[in-house]
């Protein structure tokens, strides 16, 4: 056998490699950094600044202050935020619970099992139909079509024990199909040779799903989870679609609360509301961002690996 001698790496060559690596790194990072600067920092600069300014609704002047932050820690606001947070977490929780179901159905469709095409069409209907139309249909179905089950129409301004569960069901139905599409797409990228090898080794469908497919699409699952987490504070859970600006206090999520707070006509002085809401947004980001990053890192570290 002919051996080829490798050239020893000299100090100069190493320096060159290091330099080119740095250049490559800079070039690669520059674009997203630029994008972040333009589309986040510049765009949100005023929004962030607003959080640290107190707006006088009489003189229209602003002064540097932390009062917008303090304003959210009062006995008036804390119970409201508490309920909103609880509801936001409920929606996040059900989204998490729905992940295994979505994965199973995606796998079923991916494997083209019996009636998979039919399930595919049915699952995608919520994505095809306009959300307002879907909400009207769902509301009519639940309130009138199921009137023999519920004494009080569940989706109305009047309290009913079934109200929140019915809203959660709608939320799941609508979000389900979007996730399904992503999972099916990710599964289709899975290496057929690995699946074939598993089959030859006598692995059952369940084992293939758990030990071959899931590790291969783990990155996608992590990405989606990060998106869900980041959406905890912006998720309106379709409350505006059902109730406009009148959603009962006990149903409101953080996303809905923030949106309503800066809705023109829903507040006596929308300009002043911007300043206060900005502070709330920053606080929520400060809490949520580290948790999201931590969860991402943990999932990538301890999640299943393809090897």
């Amino acid at each position: 056998m002919k051996m080829t001698a490798t050239k020893p790496v000299t100090k100069t060559t190493k320096k060159k490699i290091d330099r080119s690596s740095t250049v490559f790194y800079c070039v690669m990072v520059a674009l997203p950094l630029l994008q972040f600067l333009i589309f986040y920092v510049v765009v949100n600069f005023n929004s962030i600044l607003m959080a640290f300014q107190e707006y006088n609704t009489l003189t229209f002047s602003t002064t540097l202050s932390l009062s917008n932050f303090e304003g959210w820690f009062t006995k008036q606001t804390l119970p409201i935020l508490g309920v909103c947070l609880k509801n936001s977490m409920i929606y996040f929780g059900v989204t998490l619970l729905a992940i295994p179901i979505s994965l199973c159905i995606s796998y079923y469709i991916y494997k083209k099992f019996h009636l998979s095409q039919f399930f595919k069409v049915i699952s995608f209907i919520p994505s095809i139909i306009c959300i307002s139309a879907l909400a009207i249909m769902y509301k009519a179905f639940v309130n009138y079509g199921m009137s023999s089950i519920f004494t009080t129409a569940p989706i109305s301004l009047e309290y009913s024990e079934a109200r929140q569960p019915m809203l959660i069901v709608f939320y799941l139905l609508v979000n389900f199909s979007g996730n399904l599409l992503i999972y099916i797409n990710a599964m289709s990228q899975a290496s057929p040779s690995v699946i074939e090898a598993a089959k030859i080794d006598g692995a059952s469908e369940f084992r293939i799903f758990i030990h071959v497919i899931i590790p291969q699409i783990w990155g996608t699952i992590v990405s989606l989870l990060i998106i869900f987490m980041a959406g905890i504070v912006t998720n309106q859970a379709f409350l505006f679609t059902f109730f406009g600006i009148n959603a009962p206090a006990e149903l409101q999520t953080l996303g809905y609360f923030i949106f309503r707070n800066i809705q023109e006509g829903a507040t006596p002085n929308v300009e002043a509301s911007y300043y206060q809401t900005s502070a709330l947004g920053i606080m929520l980001t400060l809490v949520l961002a580290p948790i999201t990053i931590l969860v991402r890192n943990l999932m990538l570290k301890f999640g299943p690996r393809e090897d």
Binding site: T57, L58, T267, P268, N269, A272, S273, Q276
Partner: peptide, 8 residues
């Protein structure tokens, strides 16, 4: 006027 946000 300075407390208008309370006067919804």
């Amino acid at each position: 006027k300075e407390h208008v946000l309370e006067l919804d």
